[in-house]
């Protein structure tokens, strides 16, 4: 076990901790959700993170995308995120892919899960399709204003993202701010780890709805 993980030792069995340090995740989109996921995954000590994004840092990203500052405006997001994460000198390997995710994307074959870091449903449906074709677990999250939802989709899941969220596309740009994005990404990482480390009570055929205005979380059964 790595020295800097000592304070989380009691949370996991020896087997779970070993598994945690062997995990590899793909972060699809290094925006608000993705940068938060990357920070959390690095801190819990996973083996490797793949960062995917094709965009450059813009001024409007800085209210929630925690790996970037004003000096990064115009830089490829994955490059700036990699530099930011590597300064902490922790063991998690950071691999970057400066490319747009499409149905032709060659998904790395060593990943244990795909994290949804997208900001629209059209891209998410493509990601879900890639996860299905490559038989890799996929964890969706979406955040808007004070509300979010999280859904774990497994290779054997009967319901895919489209089955639940078809018709979700909207024309207006969603309003998002840092506290709500960070909470959502943190729960997304937590739920992914619960599944990957073999906890019993992970999100099985359920959608987790988060209402930060009412301070409530509720599971919606997807029968």
């Amino acid at each position: 076990m790595r020295d800097y993980l000592k304070r989380q030792e009691k949370l996991f069995t020896e087997k779970q901790q070993k598994r945690l340090e062997e995990l590899t995740g793909m972060i699809a989109g290094t925006g608000g959700l993705g940068t938060n996921q990357a920070l959390q995954l690095q801190r819990v000590g996973v083996k490797k993170i793949y960062l995917y994004d094709y965009d450059q840092v813009e001024i409007t990203n800085l209210n929630r995308q925690l790996c970037y500052g004003k000096k990064d405006i115009g830089r490829p997001k994955v490059e700036a995120a990699e530099e930011f994460l590597k300064q902490f000198d922790l063991e998690t390997e950071i691999i970057t892919r400066n490319e747009k995710i499409s149905l032709d994307t060659k998904v790395p074959q060593d990943i244990d899960i795909i994290f949804d870091g997208m900001d629209n449903f059209e891209s998410r449906f493509i990601l879900d399709q890639l996860a299905l074709e490559n038989e890799i677990p996929f964890i969706h999250a979406g955040i808007e204003e004070f509300f979010a939802q999280i859904m774990l989709v497994l290779p054997q899941s009967r319901l895919r993202l489209k089955d639940v969220f078809a018709g979700s596309a909207k024309k207006k740009t969603p309003a998002v701010f840092s506290p709500a994005v960070t909470v959502t990404a943190s729960i997304q990482v937590l739920e992914a780890l619960k599944y990957l480390l073999g906890f019993d009570n992970y999100l099985k055929n359920q959608l987790l709805h988060i209402d930060l205005l009412s301070s409530q979380m509720e599971k919606i059964d997807l029968k």
Partner: peptide
């Protein structure tokens, strides 16, 4: 748990014991 778009849309039949969930999903 099934989106009515994949069922009979607005003509989907529902009865006692069913659960209908209504919400604007978060896209960001």
């Amino acid at each position: 748990g099934h989106n009515v778009i994949h069922l009979e849309a607005l003509e989907t039949e529902i009865d006692n014991q069913d659960t209908v969930t209504l919400f604007p999903p978060s896209a960001g």
